[in-house]
Design a binder for these strands. Structure first.
Lengths: 187, 187
DNA sequence: ATGTTTATAAAACTTTTTGTTTGATATTTA
DNA sequence: TAAATATCAAACAAAAAGTTTTATAAACAT
């Protein structure tokens, strides 16, 4: 039941993905025209429409493709390497994967709306968080302070997003108590 | 030097913000037309262009407005309340703020591209992370497991994004060592 | 190697959406 | 109440999206 994909289709997908990445490095996703993509990809606009409904559709396909690549790399490693320290092993592969496709990931991250939210949270909460972490082991480690704050604020935002999207999963009080436990206090 | 803003402008901004939020709850930002926004806001399209260049411009203004609200609330509390536990105090205000504007924040988060990346990272790394956290104090606390993983993966993504955007700030090896220190291992 | 299938290109076209301009009207400010 | 100016209405131009048709070329199957 394996469906063979026409070589031409594979090729078209590749040039479309590459064109999108190239353009996303240059400008906002919003401002990219389908005709731009086709021009860079050197394909006809009607061919684009034969494959995708719009540019967002194309973006999702490209991201899905990335995910498949990563999953393959992880799978391959699992078979070869039988290390005890799974998580560090996982991180290494992940980081290499992202490093190799850095421009792609960067272009995806470049124009996002969440990032704006996170940035303003960092902006607004930095001082209070640092005051909590002060005199703590973490701060005494040789990790740069801005890395530490990014880490904990990233965690907060991540749970916060979950809380926003799932209103009745837990109360505000529970949320606070989770943060209180997860973020190290003075010792 | 205070510039007074015409009441009509204030009103127009408000209806535009509200219209955008309403529409973002219903569909992708990509698919929202400026004419949609104006229709919902009950203003003329030429009025829109008198204030904003495009819908992304409007979105940024709306988010900036949110930020100002939050900052005011924080400032007000700082003056009134002189508690020792600054960070928990901060979190309470933040959470109340987000809770009150939940639909707004939700609509912003609904259609983002980073979220897709984070989701697939969660998808792909869950098992390995849990295996690391197992037999650890954190997992033994009464925090739900999916909250814990969201927290640490959020932290990882947050630093990861920083690393992607600032190529030469630190090496892959340093990155790994940061994660190794920040994420609790078996005790 | 050859006939068949099918993806792509080309071009012309319709529709949608954007963005601009004008002058009249209504609202705010002082 | 007068002056200033934001909004509206309507018509317009231009850009981009999306569709359709036919011809061509590339990949596939046998």
């Amino acid at each position: 039941m394996k469906e063979k994909i026409d070589l031409r289709v594979v090729k078209t997908n590749r040039v479309l993905f590459n064109a999108l990445i190239t353009l996303m490095e240059q400008k906002d996703f919003e401002k990219i025209k389908i005709s731009d993509i086709c021009e860079v990809a050197l394909i006809n606009r009607s061919t684009f429409y034969a494959h995708y409904e719009n540019k967002y559709d194309l973006l999702l396909a490209m991201i899905d493709n990335l995910k498949q690549n990563l999953e393959n790399e992880l799978k391959q490693n699992k078979e070869e390497n039988i290390s005890k320290n799974y998580f560090i092993e996982f991180l290494k592969i992940l980081i290499n994967h992202v490093d190799e496709k850095r421009t792609t990931y960067n272009s995806i991250l470049q124009n996002d709306k969440n990032g704006i939210l996170i940035d303003f949270l960092i902006d607004v909460s930095n001082r209070d968080l640092i005051s909590r972490l002060k005199n703590n082991n973490i701060v005494k480690s040789n990790i740069p302070l801005d890395i530490i704050t990014k880490f904990y604020l990233g965690g907060i935002v991540s749970i916060g997003i979950d809380w926003i999207k799932n209103k009745d999963k837990y109360t505000k009080e529970e949320l606070i108590s989770y943060f209180d436990k997860l973020i190290p206090d003075k010792i």
